[in-house]
């Protein structure tokens, strides 16, 4: 028996919007720790890892570990029927091949049940090693989204370079090239407007902008984004999901032939 009640149902709606472009089908795993997902895109260039900790749910019952295969586009269709202020409850019986999404309006005057078929998905689980990153950049998520969008109108790839001067995003294409430098800036009114650069050593990596733009679908989840870079490792682009967890996008770099 599985029953997860999330008062801030809009978080789940935003999570689905953030990952459904990148991943088509995925297994949602439920355990005592929380509700999680790990999936790669079809070309195995990017990986998304989601964790919503059990403590973040108003009610969290998971009698035994359960893996539920879902088509994310179909989950998104279901969740779009929930109001932004609705409380969302996920329910599944042991051995059942369906999951039920229950939507309750804040004043309890409307309660809806949407039952969705589960599917069998063969997915490989990857071990993500703990790593020391050469540079960690924390910046406003809207600013990062703007940079990725702007650069993708010029080129297909972005070079992200961190030096003591700041973080530089560069691209080049047929019509010309572009460089955007963001310097550390902590003298802001609100902490979420700060750009904070922690650098152990300079790092410069090249990534496909198409994927970066896809990651920025998570922007509505968090005012800030954290970009962790290490040479010879996938970049990690992390968005916090309120105080209950995170979405981490891993993207393999483009490397010299």
């Amino acid at each position: 028996m599985l029953e997860l009640r999330l008062v801030q149902g809009s978080l789940l709606k935003k999570v689905l919007e953030a990952i459904k472009e990148l991943v088509t089908d995925a297994n949602f795993d439920c355990s005592a720790t929380g509700f999680s997902l790990q999936a790669m895109d079809s070309s195995h260039v990017a990986l998304v890892a989601l964790l919503l900790r059990s403590e973040g749910f108003e009610h969290y019952r998971c009698d035994r570990n359960l893996s539920m295969g879902m088509n994310l586009n179909n989950v998104s269709k279901m969740l779009r029927c929930a109001g932004n202020d609705d409380i969302i409850t996920l329910k599944a019986d042991d051995g059942s091949d369906t999951v039920t999404f229950m939507f309750e309006s804040p004043n309890q005057d409307k309660i809806a049940d949407f039952e969705m078929k589960l599917m069998d998905i063969d997915s490989e689980h990857l071990g993500i090693p703990e790593a020391e990153y050469h540079a960690i950049v924390k910046m406003p998520s809207a600013e990062f989204a703007r940079i990725c969008k702007d650069l993708s109108s010029i080129g297909d790839t972005v070079v992200i370079s961190v030096t003591k001067e700041g973080v530089k995003f560069s691209t080049r294409g047929d019509i010309g090239n572009a460089n955007i430098v963001c310097r550390q800036n902590t003298t802001v009114d609100k902490p979420e407007e700060a750009t904070i650069i922690e650098m152990q050593e300079p790092v410069s990596l090249t990534f496909a902008l198409r994927y970066m733009n896809s990651f920025t679908k998570a922007t509505p989840l968090s005012n800030t984004v954290t970009i962790s870079l290490s040479s010879e490792l996938p970049v990690v682009v992390e968005y916090k999901v309120a105080d209950m967890g995170y979405i981490r996008f891993y993207l393999a770099p483009k490397i010299e032939d």
Partner: peptide, 14 residues
């Protein structure tokens, strides 16, 4: 030129 690497090059199956 630059070649796109894959996630499985860095992270192994568990």
């Amino acid at each position: 030129g630059c070649k796109q690497s894959t996630i499985t090059k860095y992270f192994g199956k568990v």
